[in-house]
Design a protein around this nucleic acid. Structure first.
Lengths: 173, 173, 173, 173
DNA sequence: TATGAATGAGTATTCATTCAT
DNA sequence: GATGAATGAATACTCATTCAT
């Protein structure tokens, strides 16, 4: 699965042959089919980890009781991704184009929590603000996965200022 | 090229065989190779249109002299995409994962214009605001291409309010 | 390899498709590539047998201690070729045009032995005689492979007379 | 035809595509088919020159009245081949494997003349000697075409000595 | 006379998958 | 549980050939 993930994420599912995966994983090609039934089964097995990983990533945030902390931690998430997980998330984002693998509901609890947070903070349109931030969050993830963490620190920083998490620096721009 | 675009965008470059393209386009498979050299040549030919289309899309905005209009029109862009162009942009976004096809510079003039607009409007951090909006813009495009226009009208609307393009409705949420 | 040999020898390497070979050998086309890597690998595998076969053919002669016997046996070689080996040698001769497959050194030990034999027999230019006979030998092989044994019995017979292996018949021509 | 000859001789008929020939000859591919009907027609057109060239090569010898001169000139033929004709003769020799292009009768007049010459010179078996020399001649040609003139000067020289055309050098071997 | 766009059959090779061991 | 030999369908690409211009 690790070998497959690496290739699926970087070269694409269709561009990756089962033989390449088997060779890289140093197992026989037949074993892949014994375990996962077929190539798609292997992809699915990888994809299935998503729910867990999303929970792992966002779960703690759902228990925050301080609204500002919720937003802070949400904004800190993209930068907190460890590089050895990049491939996994890359693949998730690539798969999102296929309806079968695009499940917007996965983010519902987060969306809900954000809504609550903005509501607590007295925002006029907490749900809208939540949705917007959620949309933005995806863009931040994408940016980091594609072009590296550095490409998004500006945005994250600025968002923290906007959400009044961070003091406006005395001199900037 | 149209047949290829349709398949490349929806099923992926690697998952699309030249024979499928040829059949759909009602030409012989050999013709593809006569015209484009190889399969990648066909992809490149499609990709090359991107520069033109980006200019067509964003070009007029660069000539706006009213900063608020700049932002308005930028925000109106995603919704203005005609559906028959969805495939083209889908493909562009999918290709962004490959370094070869990811050219962030393409948006530089737009970024610059936004910077100017926010500066004119007296924003404290016009460049940061520009970059953020640009990032957001990509997310809006992505959302529309993946889940349809409806999925993003909320966001766009709310952004217009935030940027004070639209009056705050008397009753909302 | 047998199927391939038959086709390569008679119709030529380039004129023989791997599918034809596979069909004739009653195996799947894929198997050829699993075993030999690619079409050329198959050719090489066949070609590689040459060294062995040359040894098998000429080896015993190298151990002769009677110089006249050396020459006799050399002259008897072309006629001793079994017909089921014709294809193999045909292919070898065809391949000789490609530098990669033309290795004149293969005959060096034979040349050396002939040299020795002619020297023993008191020839004035044993090395030259050896080289000439070697050249002739190739022509005899070629003639037999192309036009059959009968086309060369005259030559072989006459050579035996010239080399005083055979008595001059009382009446001839 | 020149372009085709070059490729047919060096890379083989089947390995040479009509498109390659056309490109090299700087004509359109269609033209080849207009002129020669099909690829084989092109080969045939080249092959047809053989008769002429054989006549050109051997013709003068047929008129010799001095038997020793006949043999001398025959032996000088292989070395007299101009390098720009190598490709032509290479192709002829390669084609000899196909029955269709193997016409041993072409050499009959030469064979006959040699027979006469050896008879004049008092050889016991003039026809056999003629056939043998003819066979050898082919080997000399082949050797030169494959490995260059130098590879055969020894043989030719030695043959001249054997046929008493050349004096035995005082010191040799 | 010559071109070059177009084709359909064919090419070597790769692929996901099976299955006996 | 794991292997690897074997397969048949598919793949990107090339070929000889045609034909309208």
């Amino acid at each position: 699965m690790n070998a497959a993930l690496e290739f699926f994420a970087n070269e694409g599912y269709d561009a990756t042959s089962t033989s390449k995966i088997a060779k890289h994983a140093e197992v026989s090609e037949g074993l892949i089919f014994r375990h996962f039934g077929n190539k798609k089964g292997l992809l699915d097995a990888i994809y299935m980890q998503a729910e867990d990983r999303v929970k792992q990533l966002f779960g703690p945030i759902l228990f925050c009781t301080d609204p500002l902390e919720v937003i802070t931690r949400i904004l800190d998430l993209p930068a907190s991704l460890e590089e050895d997980q990049y491939d996994f998330w890359k693949l998730q984002f690539k798969l999102k184009w296929e309806v079968e693998y695009n499940n917007p509901d996965k983010m519902k609890p987060v969306l809900h929590k954000l809504s609550w947070a903005f509501s607590e903070l007295g925002y006029e349109f907490p749900e809208r603000e939540a949705k917007l931030l959620n949309t933005l969050l995806e863009a931040l993830f994408l940016g980091i996965l594609r072009e590296g963490l550095l490409s998004q620190v500006d945005n994250i920083d600025y968002l923290k200022i906007k959400y009044k998490i961070k003091e406006i620096p005395v001199k900037a721009d």
